[in-house]
């Protein structure tokens, strides 16, 4: 196939793959891709072209010391260390909290324009890189069965949470997102309030690679800062199984 032939599939896949779209446009493309195998195929073709484009640059040799640094970091003992890290997931989560490596940004109309523009670029970039998504299910009383979708780049730490149909929590309380480790420990991924339409678009930079987490939950917590660990009822969430995916 050398070009798209169906006009109703005429979404801007090239700009999407390059991360050039505004977030609203990128969301539309991402949703279309969820349902359209033809465009997913076409996107793969475009992505491969973009990859090959990376060969068309002037070749510069990396410093010889870099090779050794890579190989030292990939020491054979690292797998055992990773296993230990999994076994002591709670400690790892606590350490991550101490490190405070967390970024959460909520796109809201009242943001200053420059922040908004920067945010838009990041959202578009995250969507462009996202290669996996799943439905976020409503679990609390009064919530719809599906409240949105999370898009993640399985090779990185960025994710985008697109939510809708959320009631505004009572005064003084906020929604808070938690990333779940396999052992059930949780990492704070930030709090938010939906807009008047009940929607929220959240850019999440996970403290660690997405492959370290097995799910996500949303609770209602005291605002505006939220809690250091979940105290309220879980109202929405999802889970996933990377090991099953890795075997597939």
């Amino acid at each position: 196939m050398t070009g798209r032939s169906l006009t109703d599939h005429d979404v801007d896949l090239e700009a999407y793959a390059l991360g050039l779209l505004d977030p609203e446009e990128a969301v539309v493309v991402a949703q279309h891709l969820e349902a359209c195998a033809l465009c997913r195929y076409e996107l793969h073709r475009i992505e491969e072209t973009l990859g090959w484009l990376g060969t068309a640059v002037r070749t510069v040799e990396p410093p010889p010391t870099l090779r050794n640094r890579v190989l030292v970091e990939a020491d054979p003992g690292d797998r055992r260390r990773w296993r230990l890290a999994w076994a002591w997931g709670g400690l790892a989560a606590a350490a991550l909290l101490l490190l405070g490596v967390l970024l959460l940004a909520v796109t809201r109309l009242e943001h200053r324009l420059d922040e908004f523009a920067s945010q838009q670029e990041r959202i578009a970039a995250v969507l462009a890189r996202a290669d996996w998504s799943t439905v976020v299910q409503g679990e609390g009383a009064g919530f719809p069965p599906e409240v949105g979708r999370i898009f993640v780049d399985r090779g990185g730490r960025d994710g985008l949470l697109v939510l809708g149909g959320l009631e505004r929590p009572e005064a003084g309380r906020v929604y808070q997102v938690w990333l779940l480790h396999a052992d059930g420990s949780r990492v704070d991924a930030g709090g938010f309030l939906p807009d008047r339409a009940g929607s929220a678009l959240l850019l999440i930079e996970a403290p660690d690679d997405w492959t370290r987490y097995h799910g996500m939950g949303i609770t209602i917590e005291p605002g505006p800062q939220g809690s250091t660990e979940p105290t309220g009822q879980r109202v929405a969430g999802c889970s996933w199984d990377w090991s099953a995916w890795a075997r597939s």
């Binding site: 973009l50 990859g51 090959w52 484009l53 990376g54 060969t55």
Partner: peptide
Amino acid sequence: AFVSWLLR
């Protein structure tokens, strides 16, 4: 191809 994925 692997190289394409890597460079992307």
